[in-house]
Design a protein around this nucleic acid. Structure first.
Lengths: 345, 345
DNA sequence: CTGAAAGCGCTAACAG
DNA sequence: CTGTTAGCGCTTTCAG
């Protein structure tokens, strides 16, 4: 029914091999012949059948990405970067959003058992050990994004260092009582940011009071507070409220592990009648659109670049068929706005 | 190199047809035979080759979605709905984000010339007329989402009615001077919302002062104001500022065409020392997470449902191979919070 | 029920 | 340069 290269070949009075050469820009063809073929293609309205081509070349032309169902600028920018790079390689993006960890396993099973993509991007998720082996056996190129991994290629932001610098920024302004608000602690980035915070405090000779650290998993287990892995505005607000109950003992500055948490914290502070940065200094992490809007000082993450690099790397792996594993780290940048300033004392 | 159906057949001592039947759950096979095949499959670690299957069945198993590069809850929820439904059909999602309209054309060209998907979802974008013809000639099932269309299947929210109800809500509270803030007016949803607003005003015998309507395209053309098609927080804020300059003549209530615009407007009002809802009532459109957080009254859009319906409909079209065109409309719901209240007079 | 054979539409040697 | 031929891996008749 649909027009194939045979139809084109007949029409142009050539063999199908010639048609194929014409389509794929092979140099092994006389310009006039090519022209004839192209004319026939136009006249017939021929369009190549992608699946047949893929079967023959064994190259799928698709990269799959698995990522959590979180809202937000972070993933949006990451996707932008991924898309940008992919387009240049003329590859398509198959996305799969996952809400529960079990679904990740199910999807990995499917990906493994049906060769539907040339490479896989696993974003902000931890791959169960058993699947790591399977992935390697299947020789499917994988790049882990926004997480570290010792056996797979990965690319992430320097979370520890970013948190360290953020905390240092607060310290430089004379703050001694610095608290931290975080999403759930179990994820790698969350842990690393805590460590950066703690290290900055230690090196400055400041004590890290356990009461000054609040993470979403220490709060209520309502869906509202726990959504997005605890990195949401409500968690930030509730955490800050808790901190504020300490009265005189409360921190004078807060390092929030994400901008959205910082915004929730600022809100709670405002509700308590505190002004920012005079009564409380706040620094975030991400640099989302709202951060600029609310004059929130923050550590900017190069999300767009991370997306691009992830694709570049996976394409490299696909083309080189290399088994070599490489881990990348991108640096963060301090964006100073007016939510941080000299401590009041 | 990779293990194929032939290897399995040999191992199980059957023909490849039988293996195929075993895999695809055909009833035409004796249980014991099937068992033997399944054992062989397990022993060999056989995995079917998707592309070969697709070539043979002529069914791709992929739905492509084209959508703008906008951030936000709206698209997130929509994607969730799409994904959910797609997973049930065991289809994959190929996404393509577009930043400029030209890119839409380029992508449509590609989609048309390479049969890479069984159906296409065009989200929040207007398809140039010439492509509509091509799409129909190619008999590629298409569903337009978040826009209306007379020649293609489409599914959208009742924008006019939602805006009408929102405005009516304000009127019910005694407001007479009601302004509207919108993103760029050229898009269908934006126009429809304006019409709903105007109709509610008219029916209540209120005058629609042109000065009370401000859309992003009437503001500065900076990237900040124009991003996301003018539906962003900055535009809302600047628009409100402008309204506030009218002094006594300013509106006492605002219908914002999106929550994010409403939030920008509220911010400007707060900066001017106005309290909400006492000095200014505000109602939004969307019901994003932040709306609940900021106690913004709004018209909720069923985005998740829209995504699900879009997929259900496109699958229906794929399976029925019908040419029939159907347009769907989903209703909005008023979510009353404290940003609207009795007018002060 | 099951095996054999004929494609699906295209690429990639291989001879000319 | 170009036509021919052999697959790519799987589904689907078509005879048994």
């Amino acid at each position: 029914m649909s027009v194939t290269i045979y139809d084109v070949a007949r029409r142009a009075g050539v063999g199908i091999g010639t048609v194929s050469r014409a389509i794929n820009g092979s140099p092994q063809i006389r310009p006039e012949t090519k022209q004839r073929v192209m004319d026939a293609i136009r006249e017939l309205g021929y369009t190549p059948h992608t699946m047949a081509k893929r079967l023959a070349t064994k190259r799928i032309g698709i990269i799959a990405a698995i990522m959590p169902f979180y809202t937000g600028h972070f993933y949006q920018e990451l996707l932008r970067g991924i898309q940008k790079s992919l387009t240049e390689f003329e590859y398509d993006l198959l996305v799969h959003f996952v809400d529960k960890p079990e679904k990740l396993n199910a999807y990995l099973d499917r990906t493994l058992s049906e060769k539907r993509c040339d490479g896989l991007l696993v974003i902000s998720m931890d791959i169960p050990e058993e699947y790591v082996d399977q992935l390697q056996n299947a020789r499917l190129p994988v790049v882990v994004v926004d997480r570290g991994h010792d056996r797979l290629d990965c690319i992430q932001v320097e979370n520890e260092r970013g948190a360290y610098l953020a905390t240092q920024h607060l310290i430089r302004f004379g703050h001694h009582k610095i608290g931290m608000i975080s999403g759930n602690r179990h994820s790698e980035p969350a842990k690393q940011r805590y460590q950066g915070y703690a290290r900055a405090m230690r090196e400055a000779g400041l004590t890290v009071k356990p009461e000054w650290f609040i993470s979403a998993d220490m709060l209520e287990t309502t869906p509202k507070i726990q959504q997005n892995d605890g990195f949401n505005i409500h968690a930030g607000r509730v955490a800050m409220k808790r901190l504020l109950q300490m009265g005189e003992e409360r921190p004078t500055a807060i390092f929030a592990a994400s901008d959205i948490l910082a915004i929730g914290a600022m809100r709670a502070a405002n509700e308590a009648g505190l002004r920012i940065p005079d009564d409380l200094a706040v620094i975030g992490f991400d640099d989302i659109e709202l951060a600029d809007y609310l004059s929130l000082t923050t550590m900017q993450q190069p999300m767009y670049e991370m997306g691009k690099m992830a694709v570049d790397r996976i394409m490299e792996k696909i083309e080189a068929e290399t088994e070599e594993v490489r881990q990348f780290r991108l640096t963060t940048r301090l964006i100073e706005r007016s939510s941080t300033r000299q401590a009041g004392r």
